[in-house]
């Protein structure tokens, strides 16, 4: 992307004042406003407070990525979709930061957030985390392990896993909880 010529705008403009929104626009705007707050909360939950500028950028990124898919007529669907994208925006940010190894400099202020060891955890290479998680996965019963793998790595839906293994969806969900509990407990010990 090259924008060789950059023109300065004078004062920032407040478009909402000119009132020439079309019908769809008004609806779209309302939807955006409705989603903006919970989306900001989604990122604040992960970043901690005091990072409002970055939170705003992340919300903007979600809007950019969802714009062409967002079906505003189906609010429930739109909401779920937007949050799926928010999750991937978060993961991408995480990856980018890890690549730059800049995480500990920018992201958290231990004094303010009172979680000094969060930085330590964050510094762990994602690969190390995966290695530890894989080890933990190995001592699960085969079926539980397989369910976790099918769901989390192979990307099957809960009902697809259930159909494949002849289980109820709630049984699959219970296996998932058991697997993740075990992995988290084990990797915690390892850390």
């Amino acid at each position: 992307m090259l924008l060789a010529h950059e023109q300065r705008m004078g004062e920032p403009v407040d478009v909402s004042a000119d009132g020439e929104n079309r019908h769809a626009s008004a609806r779209g705007g309302a939807m955006a406003a409705l989603l903006a707050k919970p989306l900001a909360a989604f990122f604040r939950r992960r970043l901690g407070p005091g990072n409002e500028a970055e939170i705003e950028d992340l919300v903007q990124d979600v809007f950019l990525r969802t714009a062409d898919q967002l079906n505003l007529a189906e609010e429930e669907h739109a909401r779920a979709y937007v949050f799926r994208v928010a999750a991937s925006v978060w993961i991408d940010r995480h990856r980018r930061r890890q690549a730059r190894q800049a995480d500990q400099h920018v992201s958290f202020d231990p004094d303010r957030h009172d979680t000094a060891d969060r930085d330590l955890v964050r510094q762990l290479d994602a690969r190390e985390t995966l290695r530890a998680a894989t080890l933990a996965l190995a001592d699960l019963p085969e079926r539980t392990r397989a369910i976790f793998i099918l769901r989390r790595i192979e990307g099957l839906a809960v009902r697809e896993v259930a159909a494949r293994l002849g289980l109820s969806t709630s049984a699959v969900e219970k296996h998932m909880v058991r697997a993740l509990e075990h992995i988290l407990t084990q990797t915690r010990a390892w850390r």
């Binding site: 705008m9 403009v13 769809a24 626009s25 779209g28 955006a32 898919q69 505003l72």
Partner: peptide, 12 residues
């Protein structure tokens, strides 16, 4: 800003 299905409005 999202502005209806498959529409993105550029605003100040």
């Amino acid at each position: 800003v999202p502005d209806g299905p498959a529409r993105l409005k550029l605003v100040g």
